[in-house]
Computed example of a mutant assay.
Amino acid sequence: MGWKASAIIINKPTQVDNETLLTELGFNNLTRIEDEPFEVAINPDDNKVYIGSYKNNLLVCASGIPTQFFDENETPIEKTFNRIFPNSEICSIYEFPDETFSEDQVGENFVFLICKRYFDQELDSAHDLLFKTTLTGYQY
C-alpha cells in the first residue's frame, strides 16, 4: 500500500488566523467545505486546502504546496511561510502521486519517522491523529 501526502507541518507556530494565513499564501476566494480527518486531508483534491492543529503543530494540506520548498531558489510561498513563522521549524511532506514506485523506493518509512519528530509517533501508527484530528476545509 502506498501513502499519498501533500502537507506542511509548522512546529511551534506563532499564532495566526487560519483564513488570513491561507489568503497570504495565495488561496483566493476561499469557500468553506466539509472538514475532514487528517487521514483524508493529507492527500487533498486539487483546489482544496485543509488547515488545523495537532500537538503544537500547524498542519496545512494542499496539493502542490510542499513542492514549493524543493526549488533551488526560495519561492514566494516559502518566503511567506518563513516571514510568518520566522522561529518555527517548517517541514514539507510530499509523495509524488503520478510516479510509480516499488514499496522500498517510496520512502514511506522515512516519512513516518519524520512525522514522529512532530507527532511523537510514526504516521502509520498515529491513530489518534488519523482518526480524531479534523482539519478545516476550504475550496479555492
Rank of each mutant, 00 (worst) to 15 (best):
Q105C: 13
L113F: 14
E74M: 08
L129W: 01
K55H: 14
P86S: 06
E122I: 08
I65Y: 01
Q121P: 02
T75W: 03
E89N: 13
C115D: 09
E108S: 11
G107K: 09
A126D: 08
G64D: 13
P86H: 04
K55R: 15
I77W: 00
H127G: 11
S53I: 02
S88H: 07
D120N: 14
F96V: 14
D124Y: 04
F85Y: 02
R117N: 14
E89H: 10
V106A: 13
C91G: 06
L123H: 03
N56L: 10
R83N: 14
L130F: 06
E89A: 11
D128W: 01
N73D: 14
F119Y: 07
F96S: 14
E72N: 12
V111A: 15
N57R: 00
T67S: 09
K116R: 15
L129N: 00
F119G: 09
F101M: 11
S63R: 11
D128G: 05
S102I: 08
Y94H: 10
C61H: 05
P66F: 03
V106Y: 05
T80L: 02
L130G: 02
K79A: 13
R83Y: 08
N73E: 14
S53L: 01
G107Y: 11
Q68K: 10
Y94F: 10
T67Y: 07
F69V: 01
N73M: 11
N87E: 14
G107F: 07
N73G: 05
S125K: 14
N57H: 09
N57K: 00
S63A: 13
D71I: 03
E74P: 00
P76T: 05
F112L: 00
V106W: 11
K132D: 13
H127Q: 11
F85C: 01
E99G: 11
D71H: 13
T80H: 01
E108V: 09
D124V: 03
E95P: 01
L123Y: 05
V111W: 09
L130E: 11
A62L: 04
L58T: 10
I93P: 00
I114D: 12
F70I: 07
I77T: 13
Q105L: 15
I93D: 00
